[in-house]
Every structure is written in C-alpha cells, then in structure tokens.
Simulated assay, not measured.
Amino acid sequence: MSKQRNPNGMGTFKQRKDGRYEWRQKIDGQERYISAKTMKELREKIKKITDLPIIKNKYKVDDWFQRWLEIYIKPLKKKATYDQYRIIYNTHIKTVLGNRKLSTIKTYDIQSVIAKMNEKKLSTWTMKHARKIMNIAFSKAFEEKIIAENPVKSIEIPIKQAKPRKTLTIEELQKLFKAMENSRWLWSVKFALVTGLRRGELLALKWSDIDWQNKRISINKSNSVTGLGDTKSSKIHYVPLSENAIQFLNEQKDMLKKEFNPILYNEDLKGKALIFPSESGKMIRPDSYYTLIRRFSVKAGIKASPHCFRHTFVYLTRGNLSLKDLQNILGHSESTTTLDIYGNMLNDNTKKNIEQIDNVFNTVDKEMDKIKEEKIKNTGKIIPFRRAK
C-alpha cells in the first residue's frame, strides 16, 4: 500500500512491511505517529486525537514520572504504594528511559525496559509491576495531551518458573510448637496458621474485629514499617472463624489475663484492645515479630518466617476451598494474584495422584493374581503323557 495523503493536512497513511498500518501527522515541525493492526482500528485511534493539538513540550521521561509520582500517586495512594512505585521507577525504568523525550517513547522502548529486567533475572511479578507502573504513568500523560498515544501496549512479560513458596511440614510444625511451648507468642502462630493472615494484619487485629455470632474476622487494618494503616489491598475482607481459631483466641485471652497484661487495665491501652499485643500492651513492630519467629525457628532446627504460615495455610487447605473463596480469605484484589502466587501449590495433587496410581496398580496386582490362580488350577488338571515301558 502506497502512502495516502489526507486533505487539509490530516496526515499520511501507510501499510508497513509487517502488515500493520501507520499514520503520521506533522504540524509546525512537530510530528505524531500512531500504528494499528487494521485500518479500522487505526481510524478509531485517529478519531480520538485529531482534534487535539500537538503539544510542544520538552518533557523528558524523568520529568514526567517525578511529576506523576508527586501529584497523582503520593497524595492519593498509601505510602507503601508510593514508595514501591518510586523504587521500581528509579531502579528499573529511569536507568533506561529517564533522559529520553517523553514524546519519542515507542512500544519497543517499553519492551527494552522489560528485557533489561529479565537479564537481571528479576521475578515475573516485578516485571509485571514495572509494566503496570509505566502503563498508569503514560496513560495519564495521554489524558493530559502530552503524548499522542500510550506506548505501553502489547508488552510481553517473559514466563518464568515461579519459586516454590516455603511451607511447613507437620513434623516441622511439631518442632516449632515444641520450641514455643512456653512462649506467649505460641497462640499468635497457631492463629496465623488457621486463618492465613498476613503478619501486619495479625498484629493489628482487635477483639472488636471478631464477629463471634457470624463466625468471621474483619480484616480492616495492617501494621507495617510505616505504622498502622489500611490493608495491602486497601479493602476490608473477611476470614472464616473456625473452631480452632476460636480455641486459640480463648487461649490467648487466658494468657493475657495470667500475665496481667497492661492492655486489660490501662485506660489508654484498653481502647486499642489488641489481641496480640506485646508484654507492655502495645502493638509490636512487624520486624520485631519476624525476628522472634526466626529465633524460635532456629531453636526448633527449622527454617520458618511469619509469611510461611500464610503459605502453609494455603497448602493445607488446597482442594478444600474454591479459588474464589481462597482469594477472599487471603484478601487478594483479583483471583489472578492468587494464581500467580499459589498456582503451582493449588495444582499440587501429589497425594491424590499417588492414591490413584496405587489404586490402579493394586487392581493390576489383583488381576495378575487371578490369572496366576487360574493357571495353577488348569495345570493341576493336565495329565502328563508318558510312553509306557
């Protein structure tokens, strides 16, 4: 297809050698460019921007991302989200695109960021997150008419084998419980194992979050390194209150009474009503809780951390909960998140497969025994022929 020039300076169409269609428009020395798989798709895209002026700007990628982070992310998102976006941008995006003009960035430039991250052997999750951050930032630049189109499209993320999540075996749990038998933190560990709570959610839990009548736990806060705040997904979710969980809560309450914890009588602390406070009745820092669990795991001769209690919960309940139920209990915004993290674990039917294989070969053994018995019977009826002397 040869170039087709539109009237009134509306730009030029062209079909490339790879079959895609492109459109270019130049006004006052400034050019904008759009491409699409089909001419119909291309015309739809053009309709959206032809009435928009080409903005003469000297924005570099770094200029725009710094503005975007400070205006659109920092005031509107959790501090942890802002910090995460900033670190990923500074570490992986800025180093590749930071000094480039924002208006010159194409899809292959975005793909090059992912390629360099892949060379560093970063996880699929980290690369997906970088793509998400670039997509949000470039989409906002398009909305503000700073760029002609969002270049973050058709970006492929290399598929990698996910690292296995650390779970504890029954034997390891027995060792850990033995090492913690005289510890005030034993019930927090057992409660985490039967609820799948994150460390921050566990430490922020209050007695008022327990709905005894409907047997569920309201997860609405989380304690992180930056202090008490919303949950990781910024949404309230509910976790079933099992009989085991009720027992562990009652044991925890008795323990607080026995140690005469200040949270039971100090008016300032009483209002907080934490379920798993420190000995002084205050909320324990997440890193402090991590340290004490690691210390007990060393004593038990195993490797364990607070987050592996969550993984163990998923592993032990696999096959008994639907994906949707598990997503809700874990507080994931999307089921794809649950699958990304626990897909291999949820699909682990090893025990079931072993039983099925054993059943098949047990049947084979029985059939073979029958055949053997039939042969013995038949052999007994045969009269050997010998020539008479």
Rank of each mutant, 00 (worst) to 15 (best):
N135H: 12
V113I: 01
I133R: 05
M127R: 04
K128Q: 15
S103R: 10
E119R: 04
I105A: 02
S103V: 09
I105H: 06
E119V: 00
K121H: 12
K106S: 13
K116D: 05
T107S: 12
T126N: 07
I114P: 06
M127L: 03
V113A: 02
H129L: 13
H129R: 10
S112Q: 09
T104N: 14
L122Y: 11
A115H: 08
T107I: 04
S112R: 05
T104H: 12
Y108I: 08
I133A: 06
T124P: 10
K132W: 12
M127I: 06
K121M: 06
V113G: 00
N118M: 03
Y108T: 11
K121Q: 13
G98S: 08
K116C: 02
I114N: 01
K132Y: 15
L102M: 07
Q111D: 08
E119M: 04
K121D: 12
N99H: 13
M117Q: 05
L102A: 03
I136S: 15
W125G: 12
N99R: 09
Y108S: 09
T107Q: 11
R100D: 15
W125N: 14
A130Y: 00
Q111A: 01
Y108H: 13
A130Q: 08
I114Y: 02
K106W: 10
L122D: 07
W125H: 15
I110Y: 06
K106A: 10
N135S: 12
I114T: 04
N99E: 14
T126F: 06
M127V: 03
M134Q: 07
R100Q: 14
K121Y: 07
I110V: 10
I133G: 05
E119D: 11
I114V: 09
Y108G: 04
S103E: 14
L122A: 05
I105V: 09
N135R: 10
T126W: 04
K120H: 03
W125E: 15
G98M: 07
K101Y: 15
T124N: 11
E119H: 02
G98Q: 09
M117S: 00
R100S: 14
S112I: 01
N118C: 01
Y108V: 08
S103N: 12
I110R: 02
M117D: 02
K106Q: 15
M127S: 04
S123P: 07
G98K: 05
A130E: 06
A115W: 07
N135G: 14
K116E: 08
H129K: 12
K121T: 07
D109K: 00
D109F: 03
N99D: 15
I136L: 15
H129G: 10
M117K: 01
I105M: 05
T107W: 06
T107A: 08
A115Y: 12
R131L: 07
S103Q: 13
R131P: 12
K101H: 14
T107R: 11
K128L: 09
T126K: 06
K121F: 06
W125V: 13
W125Y: 14
A115D: 15
R131W: 08
S112H: 09
M127W: 04
V113Y: 01
K128C: 09
